[in-house]
Every structure is written in C-alpha cells, then in structure tokens.
Amino acid sequence: MKQHDLKEPHYTPDATESTSQSSDVIPGPGYPAIELVGVSYGYGKDLPVIDDISLSIPQGQWVTLVGANGCGKSTLVKLMNALLSKGEGSIMVKGKELQSDTIGDIRKAIGMVFQNPDNQFIGATVEEDIVFGLEGQCLSIEVMEERVNSYAEKLGITELLDKHPSELSGGQKQRVAIASILSMEPEIVIFDEASSMLDERTRNDLLNILSDMHKSGRYTIISITHDAQEIAASERVLVLHEGKLIADRTPTDLFQDEKILEMSHLIAPFAFQLTTALHRYGVDISIPNCEKELTEALWPLHSIK
C-alpha cells in the first residue's frame, strides 16, 4: 500500500466523550464491551504492576494501549480474559462480571493475537491450526469447514491452508494467527504488539486488516503498539505509566503532548514533530494533513510581507 493512502487517519475528536456511559445501559451498539473499576494487580506483594485502573471501552471502539516497556500493558490485557487471575477491583466484559463461573463465556468473547505468531502455532498445517480453536468450541464439521474457508478467504490465506506453518513468511504467519482467532468469532480482539515483528509492507497489511475489522463494526479492538501510523489510525489512546492510567486521549491530542510521548517512549508522526518545532520558532500553524497543506499554510505568511 502506498503512503498517501494512509496519511489521513480517521481522527474522531469526540471518541472519548462517548465512553463515559453508566453501566446500566441496554446492550446495543456503543454499550461497554469492557469496563474496569479499580483494578489492581501485582506479581509480588509490594510491586503493583497495575495500580487502580478504571476505564470503559464501548462496543465497536478501536483503542490503542501505549506505554514504555514494563509499564503493565500486557498485564492489563491479560487480566481482561483471565489469562492472569484477577487481583483487586471488578472487570466486566459485555456486562458480565468476570468471576469463576463466567470465565468460559468471557474467554469466548475475547480473542488475542500475540507478538510472535510462532509461539501460537500447534497444527501441522495452517488449516489444522485454524481448526484447533474451532474444535475447542465443539462446532459441527460443516460449520468448521465454512468458518475455515470464509476466514481464510477474508485474510487472503486460502492458498496457504495446506502448508506447514514453518513454510510461511513472517507476514503470512501473522495473517494465519489472525484468521485462527477471528474464525472463533470473538467480539473483542486484543493485539499485543502484533505488528512489531513485521516489516514495513506487512505492517501496512496488518493496518489494513485492523481498519477493515473496525469498519465492519463487529469488533471491539484493543491494540498494544508503538507504531505511530497504527496509533494514528485508532480512535482512542490509553497511556499507561508504571501501572497507572495517565492519559486517555485522541491520537491527535497525544501526538501534541511531548511529555506524555516521552514517558511512553513514542515518537510522533513527522507532521506533528514539525508543527511542534515550528511553534517553538514562533511559526503558528495547525497540523498539516499532507505536504500541500503545509506549503499552503506557509505561503501567505511568506508573501504578505
């Protein structure tokens, strides 16, 4: 994919406002898919990895979770589907409180894609690998076949179904991992640094998959990433620092806050960097969406005098 198709992220400045709903709303589009209230977690007694986090993510939202290494991002998402047993606070998924009798349902509702797809393969062929998850859901053979074929087609891996996972390239492996997860039809999909092993082009492919998933409206997406393009494409960014939620913003707002960027080890896209530097030199322009907008904004400043 070419750069210019991507340079206009769909910023939705009002994304955060829609999240402050009360928990008794009737399920429908926009109802909270995930709600955390006062969630804390520690591996040792005095080391809180997650420190009193409350947040609500409405159904269908595309959320990015950022923060420096070791800030608790992976721990937080693993708490959501009980891959780590709960510490303090309450976790609600699709209106259901996470406790021992609801874990089964909640895990069905949440799919996770990890950084290194190699760690996720078990089948001897791509097809077997996808089927493994479906067998776990006790589906009939007809349904399984239908799912394998339709999700393989959606992710463009139909011709890979008979291959051994080791024959695939990094980008293909990540597609297979995503197909395996989506075929189980989860409503919430969590990507834990799923793009960090990928090269530029396959990273764009993944971004397109995420965008398509988001547009379909079927999925609530939570993605842990450092990638500026991926962050820019999402609707909302949650920033973790030393186990605490320190910011909840739109990507546009995040990229203009140098302090938060530094704390979370992020670098803003070039247009933001340039605008921030220009402000320091007393040239006051708004963030350009492309190079043309910049020259057009500068032209009057230059030619009036």
């Binding site: 070039f270 530097a277 030199y281 007393g282 040239v283």
Partner: peptide, 13 residues
C-alpha cells in the same frame, strides 16, 4: 523536524 522548522522560520521571519 528541527532543521526543517528552522529553515521555515528563517523564511517567515
């Protein structure tokens, strides 16, 4: 970003 904005500032100022 730094060098480019300096050049722009020079132009404007």
């Amino acid at each position: 970003a730094e060098a480019m904005s300096k050049r722009i500032a020079h132009l404007v100022n």
